[in-house]
Structures are given as structure tokens and as C-alpha cells.
């Protein structure tokens, strides 16, 4: 088999027959996902649907049990410089002794190679990204002085300096203020308009239609995927969330309802 040949290069993200299991239990089971370049895609699904695992596998952080993944035609380990990643804010210790601009410069480490240290150019790139997210005044601050929304902006700035074609974001709107949410969405849409592909694990069903143009509904298997108008239907949401969903628009006959996920005890 010719390994150099790109597989499905016209897709930003191509996942085929992918199964991922933790301790023998499948978290993702036999899924196919295809996301074209230049869209802003939401990955939604109930808790434990495998949303974060999907992203981590696409980044090469989790080894698939079966199946394969390609990013612009390359397997994840060969596409490192084409992807950027915004992990969940809560996955790091924000009391770590470092400054805002330092964290943003970490986005350039992958391009620097093993032994080169970040210098003036990296600093300038970081400052540009910080002003794009409205945080340039905080560059020299300690990261433990940031609010949740500011932390998220810093993480987004770090992803921006990675110069990637595909951005993966894990719950970037979780626990941030409304102003930050709007700013983050506007920035992501701007990046999409520049031709980048944005893939976001999202939890707020109410905003899916406003923010995104592509949707993957996940619940261990893929429930539905495609452009929002075709995929964001009451039927699909019910399939994914089961009884844990309240559809607010019963009149619209499940075409494009306003839906609110509701955790049901038992």
C-alpha cells in the first residue's frame, strides 16, 4: 500500500469505520464522519456520547481501536501542523506560574522544533493574536488573574498562532460570559470565512443554528451529519437525546425546533 498517497484529500476531516474503546467499552462505535473544508461545524450529543473522544482521536491523542482518520488527506500524526486544538478550559491548572503572552506563544512550539526557543517573532505573533481576541492589555498578567471568559480568549489566541487549517475546540462556550461567547463566535466565523475549518464540541442546543453551518449529532454512533437545515430536526435530536430533551416548538412539527436538553433523573 502506498502510504504517501493522500486519502480523501478534499475533506477537512474524514473518519471511516472508527471505533474507540476505553477498557473494552466502546465510546465511539463504527462511525463515519466527513466534514468539508471551510465550514464551522458543531459536534453535539448527550453526555458520554464520545464528543471529546472524537476530537482527541482526530488529534492523535487517543489511539483508535479500529478504523482511520484523515485530516486534509493525512493521518493525524502527519497533520500536526495543520491542526490547532483548544482543550477544555478546566483541563489545566490556571495557577501555573506563567503569563498570558507566554501561554499564547506555546501555540508556536510545534513550529519551533525541539531545541529552538521562542523569540521576538513568536512574541509578536502572540501579541497580534491577543489583540484579535481583545486581550492585549493582559499580555503580561499572571494567568491566575483571569476570569473564565478571559482564559477562553487566551486559549483561542494560542490556537490562532498555530496557523492551522483545521481548529478543534472542546466546549469553548462552557462557563464563559455572554460577551466572550459572542466574541469567540465572531472570531471563529471570521476564521471560517478565511477558509479554515472549525470543529466545535458544543453543548448548547439553542445556539446551534445561530452559530454553525454544519452539524454532527453523536451518540456513540453518528445519528446524523450535514448542513444545519437538513440535520437539525426534532427527529434527529430525539434520536440522540431520547427522553432527555424538551422541544419548545411543538407546532413547527419537528422541522427546526428550539430544543433544550434536559437531564432526566432515572
Amino acid at each position: 500500500m502506498k502510504r504517501e498517497k493522500r486519502h480523501e484529500p478534499e475533506l477537512a476531516l474524514h473518519i471511516e469505520d472508527l471505533t474507540v474503546a476505553y477498557e473494552g467499552k466502546p465510546v465511539l462505535w463504527d462511525i463515519d464522519v466527513n466534514i468539508p473544508p471551510g465550514v464551522m461545524a458543531a459536534v453535539i450529543g448527550p453526555n458520554g456520547a464520545g464528543k471529546s473522544t472524537l476530537i482527541k482521536t482526530a488529534l492523535g491523542l487517543v489511539k483508535p481501536t479500529a478504523g482511520h482518520i484523515c485530516i486534509h488527506g493525512y493521518p493525524p500524526r502527519q497533520a500536526l501542523k495543520r491542526v490547532a486544538y483548544v482543550p477544555q478550559r478546566s483541563s489545566v491548572d490556571w495557577d501555573f506560574p506563567t503569563t498570558v503572552v507566554d501561554v499564547v506563544m506555546m501555540g508556536r512550539y510545534g513550529h519551533l522544533g525541539w531545541f529552538r526557543w521562542p523569540g521576538k517573532r513568536e512574541h509578536r505573533r502572540a501579541m497580534d493574536a491577543l489583540s484579535a481576541v481583545g486581550m492585549e492589555a493582559f499580555a503580561k498578567r499572571q494567568i491566575n488573574q483571569l476570569s473564565g471568559g478571559q482564559q477562553q480568549r487566551v486559549f483561542l489566541a494560542r490556537a490562532m498562532v498555530q496557523d492551522a487549517d483545521v481548529l478543534f475546540l472542546d466546549e469553548p462556550m462552557a462557563g464563559v460570559d455572554a460577551t466572550t461567547e459572542k466574541a469567540v463566535v465572531a472570531l471563529l466565523q471570521e476564521l471560517r470565512d478565511q477558509g479554515k475549518t472549525i470543529i466545535v464540541v458544543h453543548h448548547d442546543l439553542q445556539t446551534v443554528r445561530d452559530y454553525f453551518d454544519w452539524l454532527v449529532i453523536l451518540n456513540v454512533r453518528v445519528v446524523a451529519q450535514g448542513r444545519i437545515p437538513e440535520v437539525y430536526t426534532g427527529e434527529n435530536l430525539r434520536k440522540a437525546y431520547g427522553g432527555r430533551i424538551a422541544l419548545l416548538d411543538p407546532d413547527s412539527a419537528g422541522e427546526t425546533p428550539d430544543a433544550v436538553p434536559r437531564e432526566v433523573v432515572n
Partner: peptide
């Protein structure tokens, strides 16, 4: 390995994502 150790200590997930 200053750069690498710093990143792995602060944000191991991100460190893994850049290889």
C-alpha cells in the same frame, strides 16, 4: 528540554496535540 517540560507540565493535552 525546557520548552517541552513546561508545556507538558502546564497543558499535557495540548502538548500531545502538537506531537
Amino acid at each position: 528540554l525546557w520548552k517541552q517540560l513546561k508545556l507538558v507540565t502546564f497543558d499535557p493535552l495540548f502538548a500531545g496535540s502538537i506531537g
